[in-house]
Amino acid sequence: MSIFINNSRFINILLLILFVSNDSCLCMHSTVNVTATLNEGGFSPAVATWYGSPTGAGSGGACGLQNDVINAPYNGMISAGNGNLFRSGAGCGTCYMVKCIDNPACSGSPIHVTITDECPGLCNNEPFHFDLSGKAFGSLAKPGHEYQLRNAGRINIQYTRVRCHYRAHIAVKIDSGSNPYYLAMAVENVNGDGEIERIEILGEGLKSWGAMQRSWGETWKFNVPGGTSGPFSIRFTDRSSNSVVANELIPRNWIPGKTYYSRINFR
């Protein structure tokens, strides 16, 4: 009886060793560890500074959004980005969560910002540099410690790219230099990627969609062929190749400098 029990224990131990050394078991544990690492390591290091007035909304400058960043849905929570963030205008409209933890005035809580401008020159001394609006920079601080954090001027932060989710529809602001033969517009309030990869236009007199070209920042242009007029429908395609169409977004009698709001957006 005793010999039978010992043999059984030996067999059980042997089976356990074989099971632990089995590849499928190791893969299972590896998957759990990788998932945990991705969830915990979503933020990467960067540097942040701020510009403008201490509580100011910053600017839509190099992206062509002008002072629209003061209003909803941006509400001044914006940032200029260095070359790796701005990406010659392709980074306009991308959204990030940023947080700071190194400075005693930091709250450690992430805030949401949108790239709406470029920070050239010295900002490119680091791989990723966010030059935040005064309002956004102060929002990284503990309540009542905004001045202390702004006084630091330059801080280490952590950032991660996120999908944009505005409670707004895509809008286009017609460039003031537009005319019946040249139409340019800045694109605002883009959900999802926040990054427009392609824009096409269709108006009366056009037999098929015409491709617009990025002029600068988030401003796109189109040389209007003779005999073509509004209303113009616009098809937006983002970096993930998702497309949405704003039918007759720009009316026949469009006005330079005016903003036109669609009824669509990316999810």
Rank of each mutant, 00 (worst) to 15 (best):
I78M: 03
A72L: 13
G93Y: 07
Y74A: 03
A90L: 12
H112M: 09
G121C: 06
S133A: 13
E118K: 12
A90I: 11
S107V: 09
G81H: 06
A62D: 11
N82A: 00
S107I: 06
T114L: 08
S133N: 09
G64D: 03
C106G: 03
D68A: 14
V98Y: 08
L132N: 06
F130H: 09
D68M: 12
T49L: 02
F137T: 09
K135R: 15
D131N: 12
I70K: 14
G89V: 00
K99W: 04
G76Y: 02
P127D: 15
A105D: 13
N75V: 03
M77F: 11
S88K: 13
A105R: 05
H129M: 08
S53M: 09
S133Q: 12
T114H: 04
P73A: 02
S59M: 06
C92V: 04
K135N: 10
F130Q: 12
W50Y: 13
I101Y: 03
A136Q: 08
P110V: 07
S109V: 13
L85K: 02
I115D: 03
C92I: 02
S88V: 00
G81Q: 04
L65T: 09
R87D: 14
G83I: 00
E126T: 14
G83M: 02
D68Y: 05
G121H: 10
L65W: 14
G56W: 03
E126V: 13
M97C: 05
N71H: 12
M97R: 15
E126N: 15
A62V: 00
V98K: 05
N82C: 01
D102K: 14
I70L: 13
S107N: 11
C119H: 08
N84F: 03
D68T: 14
V113R: 11
C119G: 08
S133W: 10
Q66N: 15
C100G: 13
P54F: 10
C119V: 05
F137A: 07
G64M: 01
D102W: 11
G89F: 00
N125T: 12
T49Q: 08
S79D: 04
N124A: 10
P110I: 07
I78F: 00
W50R: 05
I115T: 05
P54S: 14
T49E: 01
D68I: 11
W50L: 03
I115L: 13
G61L: 04
I70N: 13
A57G: 10
G81W: 07
G134R: 08
S59K: 02
G52D: 05
N67C: 03
P127R: 13
C119N: 11
I111H: 08
A48W: 04
K99P: 06
E126Y: 14
K99C: 05
N71Y: 12
L132H: 02
S109T: 12
G93D: 07
C106M: 03
V47G: 05
Y51T: 08
T94M: 11
W50K: 08
C123V: 00
S79W: 01
C63A: 08
G91Q: 06
L122C: 04
V69S: 01
C106D: 04
V113W: 09
S53C: 02
F137M: 13
N124W: 10
P73F: 02
G134A: 01
Y74T: 02
V98M: 06
N84V: 02
S109W: 06
E126H: 14
G58W: 01
V113D: 08
N125Y: 10
P120F: 06
N82T: 00
G134D: 03
R87E: 14
C123Q: 00
F128K: 13
F128L: 14
